[in-house]
């Protein structure tokens, strides 16, 4: 365990609300390298609150990389410098003493800023609502072992299902595309026998909702995969494209 304190210069995006103009504000802070990135912001906020100043608004909840609530852009990279990790899992030992750290919100037309580093990601909920499910009411499901699913299929579906809906893929993409997010759900359900009846309609409906939410198209930059905390592969986007073409050719509703 390193005990040396890091002296940091933070440049943090402050924006009062959705309509207001924002700016980067500088703060200086000493922290332990064992601190997590969000604990560093907590310490900064504790200081600000004690002084009666408004703390930096940032969102978080589980702090173990699974709820998908947290997420800021650190030195230009969504979720910061650690591969396959959410912002809350990044620890300060990944930074140098004296480093300047630029902290900004996930930016996209589909993710308007609520305050400081907090953005509105309700578009993701509406995309799931447009078809990201199997329509089965509670009760009357057949026995769980009635339909065998191979180990390989179950594992591949789980790879896609691991998406936490954080929105880093959108923030990383120059087109602000949410195709990695959409493809993860579409391919998870397309792989499983339970997802077959609604397979075509699901792909079409979710892609259309994606476009309505002002997310851009995919131009194969792979930035999304590079920042995804769950390391979801862009091959799911290729699969989504096939699903979408098939569904439109088939003339689904």
């Amino acid at each position: 365990m390193a005990n040396k304190t890091l002296n940091l210069v933070l440049h943090i995006w402050r924006q009062k609300n959705r309509g207001a103009a924002g700016e980067l504000v500088e703060y200086r802070l000493d922290v332990s390298p064992d601190c997590s990135f969000l604990e560093m912001l907590d310490l900064l906020n504790e200081d600000l609150i004690r002084k009666g100043q408004e703390p930096v608004a940032f969102d978080y909840d589980c702090r173990e990389g699974i709820c998908g609530t947290c997420g800021v852009v650190v030195n230009g990279v969504p979720h910061g410098p650690v591969k396959g990790a959410t912002t809350c899992q990044v620890h300060m030992r990944n930074f140098r003493d004296g480093e300047h750290i630029y902290i900004e919100p996930f930016r996209a037309k589909g993710f308007p800023v609520i305050k400081d580093l907090v953005v509105d990601r309700s578009a993701f909920d509406r995309i799931i609502q447009s078809g990201g499910y199997v329509s089965c009411n509670t009760g009357g499901a057949p026995d769980g072992n009635a339909v065998p699913i191979s180990h390989v299929t179950a594992e591949a579906a789980m790879d896609a299902a691991a998406c936490i809906g954080c929105g880093a893929c959108v923030a990383a993409c120059k087109n602000a595309s949410a195709m990695l997010f959409v493809s993860a759900k579409v391919t998870q359900l397309a792989m499983l026998p339970q997802g077959q009846p609604e397979r075509a309609a699901r792909a079409k409906d979710m892609v259309e909702q994606h476009d309505r939410e002002l997310f851009g198209g995919c131009t194969n930059q792979y930035e999304c995969e590079a920042v995804c905390p769950k390391e979801i592969s862009v091959k799911h986007i290729a699969a989504l494209n096939r699903e979408y073409v098939k569904s439109t050719l088939a003339g689904t509703k």
């Binding site: 199997v134 179950a154 579906a157 299902a161 499983l192």
Partner: peptide, 18 residues
């Protein structure tokens, strides 16, 4: 049973059983 019907990808054995 309900979760399987929803498409929850539970771990499976090679023969396809839960």
């Amino acid at each position: 049973d309900q979760c399987v019907a929803q498409g929850v990808p539970f771990a499976r054995e090679y023969g396809g059983q839960l």
